[in-house]
């Protein structure tokens, strides 16, 4: 059912910040996030008759925004191929080598993070996860966001970014190694008081 609150003059007040946060955490760019929020509202205006009211207005708007973000990533991925990306290529390139000795053992001990349930209940964990996500190299971040925060499957990501599955897995592996290391340094280190 369409309530008065759902009418376009209330959209920005009701949903603006929620959409902005959704976009910002994925795009990591304030301007782009604002831009896509605006585009989402404009697209929603045109498609308004198609909002059946089966789901909430918020869910419907986020669905539109999600598509805008996917388009943005596809677009960027094509651009990056053209100007052949980040010279020096910081995709955490050296990270796998650094993490292991020549014989394949870990080069440093993996520390115990304790009870994971407790971790997720602490506000601090989320702040540091955000900090670490913000520090992912750009190409890795895009791929990682597609996979983990937009929940795309490998097949779709391969199509979106025009890379092979093996490539996707390698990059996700690096992103995870990097995030783990960052969390370990900033969160667990902190918790231990070191």
């Amino acid at each position: 059912m369409q309530t008065d609150k759902d009418s376009p003059e209330h959209w920005v007040d009701e949903h603006g910040s929620a959409l902005y946060r959704y976009a910002l955490i994925r795009l990591r760019d304030e301007h782009k996030a604002e831009e896509l929020v605006q585009e989402t509202f404009l697209a929603a205006l045109q498609a308004r008759e198609r909002f059946a009211g089966g789901s909430s207005m918020r869910t419907w708007l986020i669905g539109i925004l999600k598509h805008k973000i996917l388009d943005q990533f596809r677009h960027e991925a094509r651009e990056v191929v053209l100007d052949n990306p980040e010279p020096g290529g910081d995709d955490y390139d050296g990270l796998v080598e650094e993490s292991f000795l020549a014989d394949g053992h870990w080069s440093a001990m993996i520390s115990d993070w304790g009870n994971p349930e407790e971790a997720l209940e602490k506000g601090q964990f989320w702040a540091i996860l955000q900090y670490c996500l913000d520090r992912l190299p750009k190409r890795l971040a895009r791929l990682f966001m597609l996979r983990e925060l937009l929940e795309e499957g490998t097949e779709d990501i391969c199509k979106d970014l025009a890379i092979t599955p093996t490539n996707v897995w390698t990059m996700l592996y690096r992103a995870r190694l990097g995030l783990r290391q960052c969390l370990d340094k900033n969160w667990v280190g902190e918790a231990r008081g070191s």
Binding site: I110, W113, P116, F125, E148, R176, L179, R180, L183
Partner: peptide, 8 residues
């Protein structure tokens, strides 16, 4: 830790 990351 990797499983915790996914869950988070």
């Amino acid at each position: 830790q990797i499983r915790l990351l996914r869950r988070a």
